[in-house]
Every structure is written in structure tokens, then in C-alpha cells.
């Protein structure tokens, strides 16, 4: 029989689980807003630099950083999936365990999808000049 985790541990576990489920989605949303917004507004102003930094570098950062955050969420989801794989359930806790595994599985697949979107969008950086119309 295992001891019940304390409130702080449960909070950390809960936050980690939500990061595993929604981290990729949030990272992709931030990537889209930054990469698209910066490209669109900078090009509309007639420049391809932001200060001294080339626009391509800034957009690349808006691809790489969210991609890394998504990889982190993917790893967190994999961890949650592994940890719940051998947990035994009893009575009411069966529902809790079931939904935790559901959320972990959702995180695994969803983060893969969001990582694919971010990387596919980022590949265009290798092909197009940032302001080509």
C-alpha cells in the first residue's frame, strides 16, 4: 500500500499533467501568433530586419523555442503514461486512474500533432525569403 501524496506533490503532479496535455497546443498558438504576426507586420513596414536582427532569425526563434516547449510537453505526457501504466485501481479511484491515462494519451498524440505543425511551418523558412509575396 502506498502513502497518499501531499498537497504540494498533488499540485505539482496536476500542473505537470496539464502541461503534458495542453503544453503543445499553447506552444503552437504562441508560435503561430509570433511567427505570423512578426513576419506580416515587419514586411508590411517595408523592412526585413527588426532592429539589427534579421527577420529570418527572429522567425526561426519563434519556431525553435515553441518546438522545444512542445517536446517538453511530449516527454511529460510520456512520463504520465508510464507512471500510470502499472498503477492498480480500486473502487472509485478507478475513474480517476482512467481519466488520468486518457489525458496522458491525449497529451502524447496531441503534442506530436502540434510538433509536426510547428516543424512543417518552420521548414518554409528554409525555402522562402521572409517577405516574398
Amino acid at each position: 500500500m502506498s502513502a497518499q501524496p501531499g498537497p504540494r506533490t498533488r499540485l505539482a503532479g496536476g500542473l505537470l499533467l496539464w502541461y503534458a496535455v495542453l503544453g503543445g497546443a499553447l506552444a503552437w498558438a504562441i508560435h503561430l501568433m509570433l511567427a505570423w504576426g512578426i513576419d506580416e507586420l515587419t514586411c508590411a513596414s517595408g523592412s526585413d530586419r527588426i532592429g539589427a536582427v534579421p527577420l529570418r532569425v527572429v522567425v526561426a526563434l519563434a519556431v525553435v523555442v515553441p518546438a522545444l516547449a512542445t517536446v517538453g510537453a511530449l516527454l511529460a505526457a510520456a512520463l504520465a503514461w508510464r507512471r500510470t501504466a502499472h498503477t492498480r485501481s480500486d473502487g472509485i479511484a478507478e475513474g480517476t486512474l482512467g481519466r488520468t491515462r486518457l489525458l496522458a494519451a491525449l497529451g502524447l498524440w496531441a503534442n506530436l500533432l502540434f510538433l509536426a505543425i510547428i516543424l512543417l511551418g518552420g521548414v518554409a523558412l528554409l525555402v522562402f525569403p521572409p517577405c516574398q509575396r
Binding site: 511567427a35 505570423w36 514586411c43 505543425i117 512543417l120 523558412l125 516574398q132 509575396r133
Partner: peptide
């Protein structure tokens, strides 16, 4: 509408991947 091609690519990627789910 004549937006930069790089901008299109971010939306094109999402439009393609959304067919998977």
C-alpha cells in the same frame, strides 16, 4: 490576398495537419 508566402506556410501547415485527426 497577397500576404507574404512565409505567412501562408504557417497556416498551410496547420491546414494540412488538421486532416490527420
Amino acid at each position: 490576398t497577397g500576404l507574404p508566402h512565409l505567412s501562408y506556410s504557417f497556416f498551410s501547415a496547420a491546414s494540412t495537419i488538421i486532416t490527420i485527426p
